[in-house]
Design a protein around this nucleic acid. Structure first.
Lengths: 142, 142
DNA sequence: TTATCTGCAAAATGTTTGCATGCAC
DNA sequence: GTGCATGCAAACATTTTGCAGATAA
């Protein structure tokens, strides 16, 4: 809810309009723990706003991305997933069976990033770290 | 060339046929330092085998993937890239401007993986770690 | 000889775009 | 009232699939 307000604020400040669809979409984004896909968001928005289109969900996410308030996890074989709770790069843990994605607690990558900067001459801007595995549930039901 | 031989060997062992197109494709895969895309491979193969189709490149990569001899780096906004030199998970360094992808030397992720296993109950199978930044060349030519 | 591979074209999937209408400001 | 947002449909890019003919074994 704080997140939702913050994003609304940023939308206003940047001259974007606040529409009911946008409020609904970014509320879902900011409050979902589960890293929803566009389709997931679309289905949830439609409960209250049945005429909403997929295109609107895509366009809204695109705006929020520009504002730096959502992290996009890209996949090539399935829909991208979104993290609106925490838009800065952080590790994810993805179950290869049920495709649940969680945010594990993990030591900082800062030392690795420094190592890289020193060794390569690249200016590091960001990163992505995904671990793939079997969640406890899927280990039990094979 | 050792890599090429190894993959050819595995193809034979698993009952796949060795065709000129396949030899050409996996040679490019196994010898390219630059993490080529399907399109990159396609263009190179066509120099010697002008009738080759994109579908054949896709199908061949799919077979080599099944054999565990190529690492696929998935992207949602551009073509996937392939690492045939080293098919086990390792970090990549991606220039956000020229899209060059290199394999940096970096400390092992083993400690992080152990930390995760201990904290989450997941059975970790694999991972992907990409760093995004500006390569030295692109820092100079902005 | 025969089952697999190739190459073409069509299909599938996820995402983006164009445009007429509607609505936030 | 003005211009941005919506919602529809069409376009787009990448990858996959189906199938007839070619070819490795």
């Amino acid at each position: 809810m704080l997140r939702t307000e913050r994003i609304l604020q940023k939308l206003r400040e940047t001259g974007h309009r606040i529409t009911p669809q946008r409020i609904a979409i970014l509320r879902i984004l900011a409050e979902s723990r589960g890293h929803p896909s566009v389709e997931d968001i679309y289905e949830k928005v439609k409960v209250n706003f049945p005429t909403t289109s997929l295109a609107t969900v895509y366009k809204t996410i695109s705006v929020i991305k520009e504002l730096g308030e959502v992290l996009e996890l890209e996949f090539s074989k399935e829909q991208n997933r979104y993290d609106g709770k925490n838009p800065s790069p952080h590790p994810h843990l993805i179950c290869v069976k049920c495709r649940e994605i969680i945010d594990p607690k993990l030591s900082s990558l800062e030392p690795l990033t420094q190592e890289l900067t020193a060794n390569t001459g690249y200016r590091i801007l960001s990163h992505r770290l995904d671990f793939y595995g079997l969640c406890p549930k899927c280990q039990q039901n094979p």
